[in-house]
Nucleic acid binder design. Sequence first.
DNA 1: AAAAATATATACCATACAGTATATAGATTT
DNA 2: AAATCTATATACTGTATGGTATATATTTTT
Lengths: 198, 198
Amino acid sequence: MSTKAERTTAYIIETVAPIFNKHGYVGTSMSDLTEATGLTKGALYGNFENKEALALKAFERNSTLLLEKIDDLLGVSGTALDKLFSLTNFYRNYHEFTLDIGGCPVLNVGVDAQHNNALLAAAAKETVKIIEGKIALVLENGVNNNELRLPVTPLQFAKQLYTMVQGAISMATVTGDRKYLLNTIAYLEQLIKKEIGR
Amino acid sequence: MSTKAERTTAYIIETVAPIFNKHGYVGTSMSDLTEATGLTKGALYGNFENKEALALKAFERNSTLLLEKIDDLLGVSGTALDKLFSLTNFYRNYHEFTLDIGGCPVLNVGVDAQHNNALLAAAAKETVKIIEGKIALVLENGVNNNELRLPVTPLQFAKQLYTMVQGAISMATVTGDRKYLLNTIAYLEQLIKKEIGR
DNA sequence: AAAAATATATACCATACAGTATATAGATTT
DNA sequence: AAATCTATATACTGTATGGTATATATTTTT
């Protein structure tokens, strides 16, 4: 069984992750976190070296949650197209997923941390790279199995797909209008069907 | 001629706008601004009611700069397609434009202010709406003049175009890689040529 | 140029900030 | 259960924060 400290650490991260994601690194104060957790500074600083270390763990937990979800989605049995549609279907309702974690971690942290925290900015960038890699792998297998043909390299196509998705996420975030996701996903599904299916 | 105060106000906004855009509302302190301007708090608070009013003016100046640029681009003589390519050509090198103002104001403020400042968040949202409207108008004229045909309404198509552009801006911002813009614009230009030109 | 009006600098306020030293409570081991 | 070890609470730093009152420059008007 886990120790008390381990459970407390996990509890802190879980509670704190959406707050950092919503309000950003500088926008989140340690007292915001004592308030949300019901713990004191002693407990927070006993489990994490400082605010930055805590923010990083918070991002990592959100990122991991997203990456694991994507693994699940792309891991469904079937063709590469099945896997891609599994992914687009997820992003169509992405706001439901991000509700718990306080928004899209890649977008929020990637933008917020850009000029405020180099470590977090690098972490967000890394998450992008991993997601692109996962999609590219599916595409590559699809090409190898003759399930689809691509006009560019798998990684390049993965980047373009993810860019469009991230555009919809950005617009939906800035305007508060889910339709951007609905319409973009509809467009992407058409594109996948007509352009790369065979 | 303008009064001293008017010139000082303009100077403050100009100096402060990129700082707010880069570091966000909470990430920017009044002493950051006294340092950057070489002025004192007395001067800043003499010209602006408070930090929020200053941040709003700063965003508005960045937003106005962008909107005026877009007006110029869409105002070029020629067909609707000429105007659209004028716009895509601008976004291909968008980073040059945003260098002076500290990044994309729509993205940075839209994301940063989401949970930190309702006024700024609303202003970013409004800027999105205006940009979409400008593009939609060009598309509508193009349809009326029989220069192009659209699969959806002009506003809907404008939203989809701008979503893809914003996706590229997001990705370029988060990763620091301009290629997202280059590739997305290349894709969009193809799409405009093949799908809506006639 | 003197007077009036305005703009900026200085000095200050209360509060919030990240972080720490230490005391106390709680969990583990013996 | 006692002793030991570990985790959390309390109380406290020093500094930075947004904001203000007032004094001093600097314009602008007369």
